[in-house]
Design a protein around this nucleic acid. Structure first.
Lengths: 204, 204
DNA sequence: ACCTGAACACCGTTCAAGT
DNA sequence: ACCTGAACACCGTTCAAGT
């Protein structure tokens, strides 16, 4: 009964010099200027002012760290409630928020392996599609289309951000010639996708 | 006049042990089972039966090698001629071919930096959109939407291929529950995008 | 001329020793 | 109990020497 290690943390041993949040936050900051995959454990340790191996007391390895960074970035993205508007408006707001959240982080994508936050957003989209009245199979197809569009859009955003200047690139030069901003491209594409989904699913 | 080094290759010095095509082809083969970024120069050298540094006689560095691999994979993808069908059919065939070509290669994407073949395909899509009667700004918007969809689709294909089994993934579990194949998802999504583009651009 | 061994400047991570 | 230096098994690539 007495001496329960859960109740009495018993500050024995060396005190922790960091918290997990500090480690993840520092990695998030570094991921703003360098692609997440290129954030090195050594650079992270230096930013935290600790030896490299100390990080491994807070995070099992780099993959796990990356997952927590993605979670931290996606956490602020809300799933709009039913009262927030029509299903089209709710989806658009969700995808716009996600895109904005990810835009600060070069090369941070929604893809594999799915984080807890990624799953939350995926379920949010599915539930909005359910509210819209789509039956399960149709909702899955619509989800896949929206997800596909979203991943591609983030990739396009990255290219626009990186390829400033000399990169004589057919894709972007066409967009540049027409003076299209990434936001305009997103709005147009998203509306087209929604329109297409309604056309394909509406008559059922 | 005499002794022109261009006309008379003059087999002096050590003979080349490889050709550039051999190097690229070997890299293409390795990229079928390992993501291109994870194909190491050392593994490539071993597959070719030469010391690592020999590769640098044929290719300046790994980035350039990767670009040539992407070009080699994309080269067989044709831009359907005007006689091949309606602009919708031509676009669909092009994107389906590109998707199939890339499907064999895990993690091979259309994105940055654009290869010569990628540029050829991009210009092909733009010309098909021109044939369809889209004016330049509209064609750019439509192109960006199609490109976005394509990049996302390839990413989705990769995840479907990789996440066999335990990965309890919301995105794919929904698709699996509905027994949707990647091809069905592609067909549906592509048609929806085309439908949306027509709806947005048609009334103009 | 072309080839290539040795070496360098990086990675992530294991392992055993330190307090 | 928590921390961490040294070392290991990798990378891509430079550089100088070999034929």
């Amino acid at each position: 009964m007495h001496d329960d290690p859960e109740q009495t943390p018993a500050k024995r041993g060396r005190p922790r010099s960091l918290t997990e949040d500090q480690v993840v936050d520092a990695a998030v900051q570094l991921a703003k200027s360098v692609r997440l995959e290129n954030v090195t454990m050594r650079a992270l340790a230096q930013a935290l002012g600790v030896p490299v191996m100390t990080i491994y007391n807070y995070v099992p390895n780099k993959d796990a760290l990356n997952e927590r960074v993605v979670d931290a970035v996606l956490r602020p993205v809300a799933v709009p409630a039913p009262e927030a508007g029509t299903w089209e408006e709710r989806l658009k707001q969700l995808e716009r928020d996600a895109r904005r959240a990810l835009a600060e982080f070069p090369g941070l994508s929604l893809d594999r392996p799915y984080s807890a936050e990624g799953r939350r957003l995926a379920e949010g989209v599915m539930s909005i599609l359910g509210d819209a009245g789509f039956r399960p199979t149709d909702a899955s197809l619509a989800f896949a289309t929206l997800f596909t569009f979203m991943v591609g859009q983030i990739d396009l955003d990255l290219e626009v951000a990186e390829l400033r200047g000399p990169g004589a690139d057919a894709v972007l030069s066409a967009a540049r010639a027409a003076e299209l901003s990434p936001d305009e491209i997103f709005e147009f594409g998203f509306d087209a996708v929604i329109e297409g989904l309604k056309a394909k699913l509406g008559p059922a």
